[in-house]
């Protein structure tokens, strides 16, 4: 079905034997930056070219699915929605996982807020960066765990950068942030974390690098080279956190002092149980009706040589 579209827009650029992958980056802590800086992709036999587009999630999925780029990053719920809609995308490696001591998703309130615990959430105004995203779903899970009706909380859509002024002037009561926005709010003072990803679901993977699945099927060696470059970068980061901070700072423009120590799933593998976890939650609230969809349709470790 997508072959015509792919042929129309052109999917892969080949320069001699080396394949070029156009990557949509989002100025977050991304091992792809390290892979480019340290030459891990070249070593693996693929030329990764940043598109400097600052796109992620559903928008990046649309660009990759249309064949105008080959790779990007998106939350697992976004990949589930895309795949159920028939878009040719496939998660291939880890980029954001809530791990012990690394919640990634943090939900802030003002120090003086009447909301002292999750039980105080009814009647509150909640900002999320995207609708039906990992942040939105985590907040819904938090309400569900406390037996609070979704109807009692007013959700509104605000990009991360707009959430900061919104909580500062009291337009919303709770904001859901990730780095570097979370760290910025912490350094401002006057705010506390109400709950985080670890509190709600423990350790879970929620964002993946993804590729155009048609491209991956037609260029399995290139897909493998891309994932290999990412895995090598992840392993290098785990051993060289300070140097990695410098590289991330250089590529994202975020001051080095705000770049945190960062961890990934071992060898960047996709945790298929976590993909199932998100699918099950989406089914439970009626946001996923595609009964035919399997976790293997959303993501794979096939291109990861180090996955067991």
């Amino acid at each position: 079905m997508f072959v015509v579209l792919t042929m129309l827009f052109g999917c892969t650029k080949k320069t001699g034997e080396e394949i070029t992958l156009r990557y949509l980056d989002f100025k977050v802590y991304d091992p792809v930056y390290v892979g480019i800086e340290k030459g891990f992709f070249q070593k693996a036999g693929i030329n990764v070219v940043l598109q400097n587009s600052t796109l992620a999630g559903p928008t990046a999925i649309q660009v990759v699915a249309s064949g105008r780029a080959e790779g990007g990053l998106a939350s697992i719920p976004a990949l589930i929605n895309a795949t159920s809609a028939g878009l040719p995308v496939l998660g291939v490696s880890d980029i954001q996982s809530a791990l012990p001591g690394q919640p990634l998703e943090e939900y802030f309130v003002k120090n003086e807020s009447h909301i002292k615990s999750l039980n105080d959430l009814p009647g509150s105004r909640f900002a999320v960066n995207l609708w039906k995203s990992s942040f939105h779903y985590t907040a819904l899970m938090a309400l569900d765990q406390k037996g609070i009706s979704i109807e009692t909380v007013k959700f509104s859509l605000l990009p991360f950068d707009k959430q900061l002024p919104a909580i500062m002037n009291g337009s919303v009561d709770v904001v859901g942030l990730m780095e570097p926005y979370a760290n910025y709010l912490r350094t401002q003072g006057g705010y506390r974390v109400l709950f985080d990803g670890n509190d709600i679901f423990g350790t879970k993977q929620f964002t993946l690098h993804f590729v155009n699945s048609i491209w991956a099927r037609e260029n399995p060696k290139a897909a493998t080279a891309f994932v290999s470059g990412i895995v090598e970068s992840i392993n290098w980061i785990e051993a060289n956190q300070d140097e990695a901070k410098k590289i991330i700072s250089k590529y994202t423009g975020v001051d080095e002092k705000y770049v945190p120590v960062y961890h990934f799933q071992k060898n960047g593998v996709v945790i298929m149980d976590d993909v199932s976890f998100w699918m099950d939650f989406m089914k439970s609230i009626g946001d996923l009706n595609a009964g035919w969809l399997k976790p293997e349709d959303i993501a794979t470790n096939v291109y990861n040589n180090k996955a067991q």
């Binding site: 999630g57 929605n81 809609a85 878009l87 609708w131 509104s156 707009k162 337009s171």
Partner: peptide, 21 residues
């Protein structure tokens, strides 16, 4: 796009984000 939870603009954005074209 800002702080909305209803409206035609919000609806278009929401359906774009959930790929309901």
């Amino acid at each position: 796009m800002i702080g909305a939870n209803s409206g035609l603009g919000f609806y278009v954005l929401l359906k774009s984000q959930t790929f309901e074209y």
